[in-house]
Structure formats: C-alpha cells, structure tokens
Design a protein around this nucleic acid. Structure first.
Lengths: 149, 149
DNA sequence: CGGTATTGCGCAATCC
DNA sequence: GGGATTGCGCAATACC
C-alpha cells in the first residue's frame, strides 16, 4: 500500500500543521480516557478491570500516536471509498434490473399476442367443425382446457 | 441552549456519557483563518484567491459561532440520516425488482409452454386434414403424444 | 493481543 | 443569510 498520502500535517482540512503541542485536546471530542462503557447503550458492563485500559492519557504528540492516526485515516478513506463504490454499484444494479424487466415484459406481451392468435385460429376451426358435424368421428380433440387468464 | 449537543444517538455504541463539560473549544482543528488548504487533502491546490474571507478571526467562543455549529451539526445529522435511508431504499428496490423479475420469468415460461402445446395441436390437425383430404382412406392418427405433463 | 475495517460525530468549506 | 452536502480527521468499536 502506498502510504503516500499525506502525512502529517499537510493535509488536513486546513492543512495546518497543527502541531499539536499540547493542548490539542482536540478537544473536540471529549476524551474518554476511561470511558466506561456506558450503560445506555449496550450496557455492557465493563469487564473486570476498568480503568486500566491505558493509564496514560495518550499523548497526542507521541510519534506512535501520530502514526496510528495516520493509519486509521487511511483505513477510513479506503473504507469510505469502498462504501461509496458499493452504493454506486447498487444503483447500477437497479437500472440493470429495470432494463431486464422491461425486456421481459415486452416478451410477455409478444407471447401473449401469439397465443391469442393461435387460440383464435382454433376457435375458428371449432366453428367449422360445429357447422359440419361429421359423423365420421374419427377422433375428437379434447379442448386444451385452459382458459384465459 | 447550547450545551453540548450530545449525540447519543442511541446507537452510539458507546453511549458513553460523554462528558464534555468544558469547553472544547480548544483549537483542535486548525483554524482556517489562514491558508486554507483546499479540501481534498493534499491534492488540490487552493484556488486562487480566497484568503481573507472574514476579517474576523471567528471566535470559537462566540455565542453565535456555537449556535451556528450546533445548527450545522443538526443539519449534518439529518442529511446523513436521509442519505442512509435512501441507500436502504435503493437496496430494497433491488430486491423488489429481483422478485418482479422472477415473477415475469415464470410467466414467460408458462406462456411459452402453452404456446408450445397449442402449436403441437395445430400441427396435429394440419396433418389430419392433409390425410383426410379424402374420407375414403382410413387414416389413423398416431398421437405423437407430445404432452409432457 | 495487535491491526485493519466500520461507524458515529463534529468541523469547515461549499452548494444551493 | 441559512439549511443541505460533502470531505476529512478523531475516537470507539467491531472484526479478524
């Protein structure tokens, strides 16, 4: 994989370097350092040992941290791309299916018409027979028993 | 008002209590005040111009700022929800179309079969007629038995 | 246990 | 001016 993406700084929305020196608390979101799973949702009780996850506040200046973030950012990008593509594929599939549907419907129409013609022919024939009832009775045909739909 | 908006979203898997008590105003992300790198991260060069859009530094502590953010966050949430729903609808549509497709195909199959039967019957009759041109000869009908079912 | 993949979210730029 | 979209990074999880 190419990692060439952007590396630190450089690209951010503002690309600012944002050197997080310290306060970055980015606070943006709060830092759940301990984040016990809250009860609300899953309620997952926290397994034994809770606050030990990472006692360190995790320095955001840490090199390791930056590296991890970078990797995750890439993963996120990748995932989103994939997701987008999938959505597009689905949309395409809808069109494809719609087309196929139309094709099928046309075929049905044709078939129906053909059937109709043939049936008419038979009817005509039946009339003829009725008119000329011939005692010969060699054999008779039992109607195909199939009524219209 | 303001207060932190809180997302809970129910789903938040974590549903944590999210503590954001204090102001998160930290500069967490950079300030676009200057040099905005174009979005796109890295690739796009910033379009020419655009540099001082607002002379004011835009205080993130401003009440108005917070209000604006809050509203935008809601809009974002709304938009995303909508988007998600749309995607789901599309997926559903695919299934629907697939079903319809199957139905249509079954119908075609049936129609085709019917047509086939009728055609056979027709052929049989034609033969009879040909043979029977003259009642004198005793023709026999070999039922080709073509019926399958 | 360690890393990637997903997901929800807030921010900011843009679109409309 | 203001909601709607969209790209992006962060953090918590889900998944292997």
């Amino acid at each position: 994989m190419s990692k060439v993406s952007q590396q630190n700084g450089a690209a951010g929305v503002n690309g600012i370097s944002v050197i997080h020196t310290q306060a970055h608390a980015s606070g943006l979101q709060q830092v759940p350092q301990l984040a016990p799973a809250g009860p609300g949702g899953g309620g997952k009780a926290v397994p034994p040992s809770k606050q030990s996850k990472k006692s360190s506040p995790m320095d955001r200046s840490s090199d390791e941290y930056r590296q991890r973030r970078e990797r995750n950012n890439m993963a996120v990008k990748k995932s989103r791309l994939k997701s987008k593509q999938k959505a597009q594929d689905t949309l395409q599939r809808v069109n494809q299916l719609k087309e196929e549907n139309e094709r099928l419907e046309a075929k049905i129409k044709l078939l129906t018409k053909e059937l109709s013609v043939l049936k008419d022919l038979f009817l005509e024939h039946a009339h003829n027979l009725a008119d000329n009832v011939q005692p010969s009775s060699t054999e008779n045909s039992t109607s195909p028993a199939k009524a219209g739909q």
